[in-house]
Design a protein around this nucleic acid. Structure first.
Lengths: 147, 147
DNA sequence: ATGAAAGGTTCAGGTTGTCAAATATTCAGG
DNA sequence: CCTGAATATTTGACAACCTGAACCTTTCAT
């Protein structure tokens, strides 16, 4: 991971960082609201979103969300209690618990994802070709970083 | 606030939303880490950042961060207990408490802000002219939204 | 077989957040 | 001047999130 003088401390960089901070704040707030509208917390929605592609061990969830495994235990407990998720031992290695979204969980997650596409206010200011430019820039930023 | 069919539900929009979600996750994580490195929580760092331009009433802080005033009470309590912030009654209206960053608080906030400019990994992938494009796009998005 | 290592859970403790109720201050009318 | 509504903040109860240490079970290497 090359991490050296690539980023100059100039006004432009600072401006972009501030703008991103603003965008992050809006995005974060809208995500929490969209989750709350389906009586999910932000953390629960994130876990549910991770399970879209299939079941996942607890530890993998914790690593992806950069938090302690013991934290995931509680979040999955609450999701499981409400029928959004199931917990099953992996037959290959009975130490690991595979967390899988139920049909209800999949539905809630998909619904939330759809609502984000519509509700994402900031994007309304950009035309299709500008979104294309933005997509390319964001993509370049994300492949370089740890995302 | 025109909020109608401006956002088509197409693949491009969905892709941009997903990319932004990834970027938001990275940004958020790095912000928390930078704050933790100065033994601040993310919420405390946000409040401290708001006070860079001067003292601010509790209610104004709560409105800016989209949370309940009673929540700010606790955060400011902890910041105050550690000398990052002071609380004084506004002489104009003794109901309101003006929260001001101490010298120590200003220093911590400025330091955190500086560290973000250097540490912001994703931006390293972009050259100066691309950052300019990104800045313009982000700016357009933010003036339109509630940011 | 034994012991180290790995995946999860449990527990204690701190922070964030909400909501309802209480306090203090301001302000408009009578 | 006095009363009552409105505003700013705080308090208390409660839930969720998050960490760190201790613990149990299962796996794996020796």
């Amino acid at each position: 991971m090359p991490n050296d003088e690539l980023i100059p401390e100039d006004a432009l960089t600072r401006e972009v960082v501030d703008l991103m901070a603003g965008l992050v704040a809006i995005f974060h707030r809208e995500y929490e609201e969209a989750a709350a509208a389906r009586s999910l917390t932000g953390a629960q929605a994130k876990v549910l979103a991770l399970l879209r592609r299939g079941p996942m061990p607890m530890r993998h969830i914790a690593q992806t969300l950069s938090c302690e495994p013991s934290n995931i235990t509680g979040i999955v407990d609450r999701l499981e209690a409400r029928g959004f998720v199931t917990r099953e031992s992996d037959p290959q290695d009975r130490r690991v618990k595979l967390v899988a979204a139920t049909e209800q969980g999949q539905a809630a997650s998909a619904e939330l994802r759809e609502s984000l596409n519509f509700a994402r206010e900031p994007l309304a200011a950009l035309g299709p070709e500008e979104r294309g430019v933005l997509r390319d820039l964001l993509h370049r930023m994300l492949v370089g970083a740890g995302g």
